[in-house]
Design a protein around this nucleic acid. Sequence first.
DNA 1: TGGTTAATTAACCAAGAGGTTAAATATAAG
DNA 2: CTTATATTTAACCTCTTGGTTAATTAACCA
Lengths: 116, 116
Amino acid sequence: MTDPLSRTFAALADPTRRAMLARLSEGEANVSDLAGPFLKDMSLPAVTKHLKVLEKAGLVRKGRQAQWRPCQLNGEPLREAVDWMEQYRIAWEEQLDRLGAYLKTKTEGAGHGRRK
Amino acid sequence: MTDPLSRTFAALADPTRRAMLARLSEGEANVSDLAGPFLKDMSLPAVTKHLKVLEKAGLVRKGRQAQWRPCQLNGEPLREAVDWMEQYRIAWEEQLDRLGAYLKTKTEGAGHGRRK
DNA sequence: TGGTTAATTAACCAAGAGGTTAAATATAAG
DNA sequence: CTTATATTTAACCTCTTGGTTAATTAACCA
């Protein structure tokens, strides 16, 4: 699982990480800001690890400012993931269309020929 | 990692599984059809396992027809995943806009006042 | 019945993910 | 120089993932 797209999807496959991205979509945040909502459920090092997964996937960029590490969201890998999905979603919708058309034909042809 | 969205993203986080979905986007296929391109790299049971991951994520539906198991793609979970992403993509693009606006302000204000 | 093809299950293994606690680092502030 | 705050690293543990080979099930065919 070394390719970028896999890393992106893997990063998204965790509700904690998705929540952190959601938080970051509202603006920059330090590690402890991000950790806040989760400290009831897990330790700070656990959050650091999640953050690292997001960083390695390129979804988050971490700066430095004194002892704080302000984190920013980077949407680019997201766009690539969406692109991958859309590419096939089109095919899937076409499949649905074909199915729809097929069913329609069957129904229309039920009387074995056109009406009128 | 028990929620549907996580299962979907996790299922997509593997190039073998993505390739299987890509194949299925061209139409129905049996397990051995799907396995074909990968049998140089892995065994059939490995493919079965990948398929099971896709099934549990609801991305693939497996029927039966004699000894074959015709597999079909189900795009619905995909749509939900895209929806999740789009929801935040909007925010991300806005962030980019704000960044752009900020840089623009800085440049404009460089001469400390408006040019005539 | 016995054989062939398609696919799954079982039992196992190595590596990775996600968590922990305790110790270390980085920066600021007395 | 010491202390406080923010964050990371180290060492460890358990469960899951992704793979294996060997055996099993399911359905057809002769």
